[in-house]
């Protein structure tokens, strides 16, 4: 089978941030990270966390039919944490490398199925969630499934 590839093009803008182009779509990206609650754009780090959430949610939805589970509602809350925020800003004299120390993920799933059936679905979803698997290889990923 041929290698599959996905492409993104990104044009930086003066002052930081820029626009990402993917196939026929485009979206604005802010700074790599921001400590300003009023930062005008979604940051690169926030896109990464959103991608993780969408990956897990999408995998659950994709695999649900084969488990004969109907998902009525689905929500994912993601929290990325670091103890070395000054490294992200390139502060001279600050030691260590930038990165998240851990990512907490809480997945809320409402179905008409039993908790055991949903847990089996969840295990399957984790195997096909590429972003979760990649991040889990470099960061402490704390995943929690809550069913209703």
């Amino acid at each position: 089978m041929e290698t599959q590839e996905w492409r993104i093009r990104f044009r930086g803008e003066p002052g930081g941030g820029g626009v990402a182009y993917a196939r026929g779509h485009q979206f604005a990206v802010g700074d790599p990270v921001s400590f300003d609650p009023l930062h005008s754009r979604i940051t690169a780090l926030e896109y990464l966390l959103a991608a993780l959430a969408a990956d897990l949610a999408g995998s659950l939805r994709r695999l649900a039919p084969r488990h004969r589970i109907v998902i009525n509602d689905l929500e994912v809350a993601v929290k990325g944490m670091t103890d070395r925020p000054l490294v992200f800003l390139g502060v001279v004299g600050e030691e260590g490398e930038a990165g998240l120390d851990r990512i907490e993920v809480k997945v809320y799933v409402e179905t008409g199925s039993s908790a055991e059936e949903v847990r089996t679905l969840w295990q399957g979803a984790l195997r096909v969630s590429a972003i979760a698997r990649m991040l889990g290889g470099s960061t402490r990923l704390e995943l929690e499934l809550r069913t209703a």
Partner: peptide, 23 residues
């Protein structure tokens, strides 16, 4: 955040400003 705001304003005024942070 303080320096982000100052930097953005300086750019508007045609005086580009970069900040280097120290511990």
């Amino acid at each position: 955040v303080i320096w982000d705001i100052i930097g953005a304003f300086f750019r508007e005024k045609g005086t580009p400003l970069d900040t280097v942070y120290y511990t």
